[in-house]
Design a protein around this nucleic acid. Structure first.
Lengths: 245, 245
DNA sequence: CGAATCTTTGAATCCTCTCAAGTCTTGTGG
DNA sequence: CCACAAGACTTGAGAGGATTCAAAGATTCG
């Protein structure tokens, strides 16, 4: 919770005004793909665009669920705080995903998890009412929403199968590879790295163990620091690692 | 995969004929709650009812997704097989849940996981076409389906937060408590136990370690064998265990 | 009743965590 | 712009926990 930024407090959050869905380049990948935005222009007006810095808090677990956020770019983590105070990330959401999708459920007034920006992200903030209206008026739309639920399930399953299973070594390798896949630029092997703390929360591994494993990867020539928070990958090498395990 | 039973092969599977949705007692808890079944009687005709024994295979990961199964009672596990041959359970589904819900997605022709009956279960088998038609004709219904997606997400999150985090001791305790919660009879503290293998796949713990932990619980008077595959709980004792951790 | 499967237990090893100290970064204020 | 403080990351050593391998008990099912 330290140094997280709320929407209203943080000066670094850039409010970019009403979203221009008609000309949004990201839209072809997100939940509004295939939506006739011209037709729904009036309805879409309340949608606002923001630029959040890393560590910004979108919403906290248990608070009233009022908006759905669509990620234009960047990565958002959904996390839960355990009874002992430690934090567990239950999934990573990326470009095109809808953060806080539980908002659309009738009997659901509060967010299931805490949503925090991982890498600086541009998001559209959609009031619950708009979302629900869209869904009721447009049969195509709720089909898209179901696909979003499915993507979220896949993201959760990935945390279970890839990030929470096997040795510390394997799990960290899978996280690294997944980060590279997320960036969708296979050949650009330079990646903006997650903090050790976040990898820990994603894998349920001690911070120190992660540090050690990554030090090994560096020694083996699989990783290389290429700037602040940036790593250069040996993509094939890392991939071999997971394949053989 | 050993000793699993397919729908067609197994003699123990009781085909109970067409589902009688109009008089189904379970319906008030499942996805057909609030559905005017009389109105859709014709559409619901193709739905079949089965009684599966434990270990029966509903469907395998990657095979064509043709049906959605609704659990009338019992528990179903969704599992994925890892590259090294080991198996990981990604969630447990129970009474009222829809198994294989990804079938409703347009661009989805195959099941995401393998679905296996854990405890003997009664299920209704709903052809994809029926499910999709219902969803298109009845606006109420797709709302219910969204709630089902949500339940599945919660089930996956539980595997992450409760069953894959903390010490072996804690994780097993949480599984035991969860099994008791599932049965919804708090005072009846006698539970049908999962096999060690399944708890292992659910928690990513070695079979032997689980055996050891449960032996400790028995020594501490928290558990007690009360029949084949059955355990009597010390509910409060087990609960204290998780609270304090 | 016997074979196959599943579970339990033991002992040794290996892995991961914890605690602690030191290094490196980052951001802030002089 | 530099210095300092706070935070983040790294590294080491030791303890403790979990896994592995192996073998003996239980159960289940034919």
């Amino acid at each position: 919770m330290n140094r997280q930024l709320t929407l209203t407090k943080c000066l670094n959050v850039k409010w970019e005004g009403h979203a221009d869905c008609q000309h949004c380049a990201i839209r072809k990948n997100d939940i509004f793909a295939n939506l006739d935005v011209a037709k729904y222009a009036a309805l879409l007006r309340p949608i606002l665009q923001y630029n959040f810095p890393a560590k910004a808090l979108l919403y906290a677990q248990g608070t009233p669920a009022t908006d759905v956020y669509v990620i234009r770019n960047g990565i958002v983590k959904l996390e839960e705080t355990l009874s002992d105070g430690s934090v567990r990330i239950v999934r990573l959401l990326q470009s095109g995903d809808a953060v806080g999708i539980e908002t659309v459920l009738d009997a659901h007034q509060s967010y299931d998890q805490t949503a925090v920006i991982l890498r600086g992200a541009a998001v559209c903030k959609i009031p619950s009412s708009v979302f629900v209206k869209l869904e009721k008026e447009n049969p195509e739309f709720h089909r898209v929403i179901m696909e979003e639920w499915h993507r979220q399930l896949n993201a959760a399953d990935k945390v279970i199968v890839d990030f929470s299973t096997g040795t510390v070594h394997d799990r960290v390798a899978r996280v690294l590879i997944n980060l590279a896949e997320n960036s969708k630029k296979r050949n650009l092997i330079e990646i903006e790295m997650l903090g050790v703390e976040d990898i820990a929360a994603l894998t349920s591994i001690a911070r120190e163990s992660i540090s050690r494993v990554m030090a090994n990867f560096k020694r083996d020539g699989l990783l290389e620091k290429s700037g602040p928070n940036r790593m250069r990958y040996n993509w094939d090498g890392l991939n071999d690692l997971v394949k053989h395990s």
